[in-house]
């Protein structure tokens, strides 16, 4: 079970966080912590025409958190808030073992995490930040 958490796809994806950068002029910035371990993501979103135009992030965390941040950054560009919220919900459903296909197929790489409840928050941290960012954006620009 543990070995699957560290398969080549997750490890390789996590390593891509080294190339991640913050946005120079984001519309929304959110900082979220995982209180259990102190891991932290700072997530920047820039919007254009109601869709995400650019994503930036600085992620300090374990392989699972970093891989999740990379997947989020890859797929969020071009998505509207509705699609982003579907992606968040589908990731939660995947971890909870509910039937269905994730909004972004690449999220399936986190299926092995389903069996390790203590690591769900690691995967969810970037998506929790995304959810806070969307809520804030909606409050500021209803």
């Amino acid at each position: 079970m543990t070995a699957e958490l560290y398969d080549a796809a997750i490890v390789a994806t996590a390593k891509a966080t080294a190339e991640a950068e913050r946005l120079p002029a984001p519309d929304v910035t959110v900082e979220e912590d995982n209180p259990l371990c102190g891991d932290r993501i700072t997530l920047d979103l820039a919007f254009a025409d109601g869709r995400v135009a650019a994503v930036g992030h600085k992620t300090r965390g374990c392989l699972l958190t970093r891989a999740a941040a990379v997947v989020l950054a890859r797929h969020a560009v071009g998505a509207d808030p509705a699609e982003l919220r579907r992606a968040i919900a589908s990731l939660r459903a995947l971890l909870a073992g509910e039937a269905g296909t994730p909004e972004w197929p690449e999220l399936s790489m986190f299926e092995p995490v389903r069996a390790v409840a203590s690591r769900h928050d690691c995967v969810l941290l970037p998506f929790r930040a995304l959810e806070v960012a969307l809520d804030r954006r909606e409050r500021e620009r209803p």
Partner: peptide, 18 residues
Amino acid sequence: HPHDVCQLLDERGVCTRG
């Protein structure tokens, strides 16, 4: 990351905290 260290150690029955 310490959580990754602990997770892999658990494969060997080694219980540590990260």
